[in-house]
Design a protein around this nucleic acid. Structure first.
Lengths: 334, 334
DNA sequence: CAACATTAAGATAGCGATAACATGACGGCG
DNA sequence: CGCCGTCATGTTATCGCTATCTTAATGTTG
């Protein structure tokens, strides 16, 4: 008991004993048994982060933002991935809960099934914050970027450049209802007085999955085959945009003269494509930090109410839509 | 006790009791307290994976390979990142150990300091496998790709195409001693009878960090300023290669006619650059699987001896070095 | 049918930590 | 001096789980 007090700086311990204890601990290479401590105190000082997948630069920066905050507050962060299947998502979530983490951040894409699970987690009174999927259940905070507004801005930018026929690559039209980026695209067209044409929306057949380079590549080839093909493309993300750029090159189309292309996410590579890619940047690290702060306040019981934070996106114009820019203007600033 | 037996299928339990127990467990939403179990049985059935960072497609596939194996064997995997600082690496490692994981996979880049820590972990008899850094301490298994051979093959490919002046982008010459990709580059030049020229090696100033697009961009600009610039570039990784391609475009150089560029890693994007990038592929998922199997055998006490697995890399030739290929040949197969 | 094996369930203890309580030394104060 | 508060340390119990031991009913066999 005295040793416990000495090592944890709690209660009364004389200076001499404290010194002897810490020397002995050093010599024996003593490390506290965290599972045993959690058994008694019901706290692990650890949080779980559930990511959709790991390849994503998005995930990396998100984790960075969260770690900044969690590290500073003395929480250990453990990460698990749900490689895009709900089953794996459940398993990882359950593993965190079984290991008794103090709180959870969930950054996987929203699905009906997934939401159900989150609901039941929240009912177990486990502090929970979501990122990128606005969930409106009691007991869950959420942080998200305004994808709708970002997409709206990007498409409006294309319209202002004079484009009338604008395609969307990255989702099948029937799956787009829930995708805020797609809604922003539709809204921008309508706001400009033009009616969206269903054949201008192309995407992977297997449902609302993440869009890849390959989807972008195939998507553009498909659009180019139309009788009156689009003169501009708004892609669901930069990967799809880059795939589309590649397809345009293959077809001998010049970017942006024959076809303008814009993406979403501003991945690091986006500034280094040929030509550099116009895209929408979302404040990723800030979302991570906000989520971490929400979670900490919940875990410490400082916040009971459910909160939602939505952050603005920023359009970054580069030469894939606007040829008049010089290269230097579009490189990221150090 | 009977409930424990019923839920764990161990010892004698009558069918009727087993049924009653599992129904009660269901109704009460009972979940075993894993930390408490570990306290008693000294096993957590969980492993820790330490990654250098998360943005990397490499990390993603590695984790995929490991999860395949660990999931099948009933181990939970937790991930932590060491965003390229040794301090963070130590902290994450220690966190895993303090939480009493059964074993560790470490995939961070090798450093002197880092190796020391691994050594001390191995001395605590914690099963440990490294990926991508051959460590030769007692008690540690390691898995790696043959980066040396991959680089050798890529540079030899450039030489066979007739290139005499071949640059390396991605590391400062003085830091290259330990980088196997750089050694392979040097060896290939020597094997072809040409002496490496130090001014043809350029890289980030801040030591042996990971090379980025930006490093590639700056690197090529620097090489292009030389009196007799290289006609071919071998980049430390695909990110640097893509940055170099962008710089070549900016300078109005044609790829591969004015300058041939090859990378390393075969990131998914590599097939979709303009032109598609020649690169070296390493068997990532297999490395992950091998590491997981090594670790499992150690954790189960089936293997005492120290083992090392080295896997071959494969050169993938695309149009960034060889114009005669058609586009279709170089796209990845589904 | 006695002796022993098999099956089933309960009782006890202990993993490592700490909360809560208990004990004792010491000094200040009225 | 006796009382109390402060400081320092020790004792006990407990978190949830399971290894081990105990008990008891039932089955099997020569």
């Amino acid at each position: 008991m005295t040793a416990s007090r000495a090592l944890n700086d709690s209660g009364y311990v004389s200076e001499s004993v404290r010194k002897r204890v810490s020397q002995a601990a050093e010599k024996l290479r003593y490390r506290p048994n965290i599972p045993a401590r959690q058994l008694k105190v019901r706290r692990l000082n650890a949080v779980g982060i559930l990511l959709p997948d790991i390849a994503n630069p998005f995930s990396a920066e998100l984790v960075g933002g969260m770690k900044d905050v969690f590290d500073a507050e003395g929480y250990t962060t453990f990460i698990a991935t749900a490689n895009r299947t709900v089953k794996e998502e459940n398993a990882s979530l359950q593993a965190f809960i079984d290991h008794r983490v103090d709180g959870l951040v969930v950054a996987t894409r929203g699905t009906m099934m997934g939401d159900k699970v989150l609901h039941s987690v929240a009912q177990q009174r486990i502090p929970l914050v979501t990122i990128g999927r606005p969930v409106h259940f009691r007991g869950i905070d959420s942080v998200t970027a305004n994808h709708y507004q970002g997409a709206f801005d990007a498409v409006t930018h294309l319209i202002k450049l004079g484009h009338k026929r604008i395609g969307f690559i990255g989702i099948a039209p029937e799956d787009g209802k829930l995708l805020r980026r797609y809604q922003g695209y539709l809204a921008a067209l309508k706001a400009a007085g033009s009616e969206p044409r269903p054949e201008y929306t192309v995407g992977p057949a297997e449902g609302p999955a993440y869009a890849t380079q390959e989807d972008g590549y195939r998507g553009l080839l498909q659009l180019a085959r139309l009788h009156r093909p689009p003169t501009a493309i708004f892609a669901r993300n930069d990967f799809a945009a880059i795939g589309a750029m590649h397809a345009a090159h293959t077809l001998g189309l010049s970017i942006p003269d024959d076809i303008a292309i814009a993406g979403f996410d501003n991945i690091p590579l986006a500034a280094f494509t040929a030509p550099p890619l116009t895209t929408v940047e979302q404040p990723i690290a800030q979302q991570g930090q906000a989520a971490a702060r929400f979670l900490i306040e919940r875990m410490q019981g400082k916040s009971q109410q459910d909160r939602t934070a939505m952050m603005e996106c920023r359009l970054i114009v580069r030469q894939s839509t606007d040829r008049t820019l010089s290269a230097d203007q579009t490189l990221p600033v150090r």
